[in-house]
C-alpha cells in the first residue's frame, strides 16, 4: 500500500470584480514564475557560497603555509565581496533596512513584490527594471559560478596537494 496516490481537482476563478484579461494573467504568471525562480537560485547560491566561505575561514586557521594562506585569504576576500554585493548582513531588525544599504537580492525581491499586486498587471517599468536587474544578475551569477566551479576547486586542489582536507561545497 506504499506510495498510493489519490487525485482530485480544483478550480480557481478570477474575482468577478477584476478587469484582468487572460493575456494579462498569463504575462503575470510567466513573469512571476521566472523571477521567483531566479531569486531562489540567487539565495541558494548565496547560502552555498556562505557555507563555503565559513569552511575556508576555518581551514585558514590551521594553514601555516604562507602561499596557501595568501591564496586562501584572496579566496575569502572574493567570497566576502560577492556575498556583500548580494545581501546586507548588517540588517537584522525592522528599521535596519533604513540604516544600511540594501543589496542585490533585496532589490530583486522588491521588483518581484511590486509586480505581485492584488489585481495583477506587469507594467512597462516592471519589465524594464527586470531587464536592468537581470543584466546585473548575469554578472553576479557569472562571478558566483566562477567561485563555485573554478576558484574553490582550484583552492581545494592546492589544499589536497599539501595534504589538507577539501572545502566541501
Amino acid at each position: 500500500m506504499n506510495g498510493k496516490t489519490y487525485d482530485t481537482k480544483g478550480v480557481i476563478k478570477s474575482m468577478p470584480t477584476y478587469p484582468t484579461t487572460k493575456e494579462q494573467y498569463m504575462a503575470y504568471d510567466r513573469f512571476m514564475t521566472e523571477t521567483e525562480a531566479e531569486l531562489t537560485k540567487m539565495h541558494d547560491m548565496v547560502n552555498t557560497l556562505y557555507e563555503a566561505k565559513k569552511q575556508v575561514a576555518d581551514v585558514l586557521k590551521e594553514v601555516k603555509d604562507e602561499t596557501l594562506k595568501a591564496e586562501g585569504k584572496k579566496l575569502l576576500d572574493a567570497l566576502d565581496a560577492w556575498d556583500k554585493d548580494m545581501v546586507q548582513r548588517k540588517s537584522k531588525a525592522y528599521d535596519d533596512v533604513e540604516n544600511f544599504p540594501n543589496k542585490f537580492t533585496a532589490e530583486y525581491l522588491f521588483m518581484i513584490n511590486h509586480s505581485n499586486s492584488s489585481i495583477p498587471r506587469i507594467t512597462q517599468p516592471a519589465l524594464d527594471r527586470r531587464v536592468e536587474l537581470d543584466a546585473q544578475w548575469a554578472g553576479l551569477k557569472a562571478k558566483g559560478q566562477s567561485l563555485l566551479k573554478e576558484k574553490i576547486p582550484a583552492y581545494n586542489a592546492m589544499l589536497w596537494e599539501k595534504g589538507i582536507g577539501a572545502i566541501r561545497k
Binding site: 539565495h43 547560502n47 545581501v87 546586507q88 548582513r89 533596512v97 540594501n102 537580492t105 525581491l109 513584490n113
Partner: peptide, 12 residues
C-alpha cells in the same frame, strides 16, 4: 522563496 539566514530583507 528561500531567504538567507539572519539577513533581514523587507520583502514578501
Amino acid at each position: 522563496m528561500p531567504g538567507v539566514d539572519g539577513v533581514y530583507i523587507e520583502a514578501g
